[in-house]
């Protein structure tokens, strides 16, 4: 549940979810799939994942930055997410994936960081929607 947004120099992501939790999960999958072809990533290893922030916007930026940290520093591709809890300042969950294997997980682009530029999180009548831009 996500789509790519155009930007002159960088790239954006619009994600949806029936709940706030699902929104965060889908945004994470969306971001990983921009960086790597996740078709052959097996969700065989569980990794804990958590972030904190001062509001919902910073929670989303910090949550996605955590996923990016796994990808760029730990060389782990995550493809399944479960958000257990989102409070005003914290998000806690679990993710599943496996160590990066360039032979099976074709790299697509390097994401440098998650930006606040035109960041938007909105609650709609029956779902949540977010737009976030990534520096590439």
């Amino acid at each position: 549940m996500f789509e790519v947004l155009e930007h002159t120099a960088d790239i954006g992501l619009r994600a949806w979810g029936e709940t706030k939790e699902a929104l965060f999960e889908n945004a994470a999958i969306g971001m990983v799939s921009l960086a790597v072809d996740i078709a052959d990533v097996e969700p065989r290893i569980a990794y804990p994942i958590a972030a904190s922030g001062t509001d919902l916007d910073s929670l989303l930026v910090n949550w996605l930055s955590e996923v990016l940290y796994y990808l760029d520093a730990q060389h782990v591709v995550l493809r399944k997410f479960h958000v257990e809890q989102i409070t005003a300042q914290n998000i806690v969950g679990q993710a599943w994936g496996e160590p990066r294997d360039p032979a099976r997980h074709r790299p697509k682009l390097i994401i440098k960081g998650v930006t606040y530029h035109q960041l938007r999180i909105a609650e709609q009548p029956e779902s949540w929607c977010a737009e976030v831009f990534l520096d590439i």
Binding site: H7, A9, D10, T115, Y116, H117, Q118, F133, D135
Partner: peptide, 9 residues
């Protein structure tokens, strides 16, 4: 110049 994030590039 082109659109960046925060500052223009």
């Amino acid at each position: 110049i082109h659109q960046g994030y925060g500052f223009p590039i």
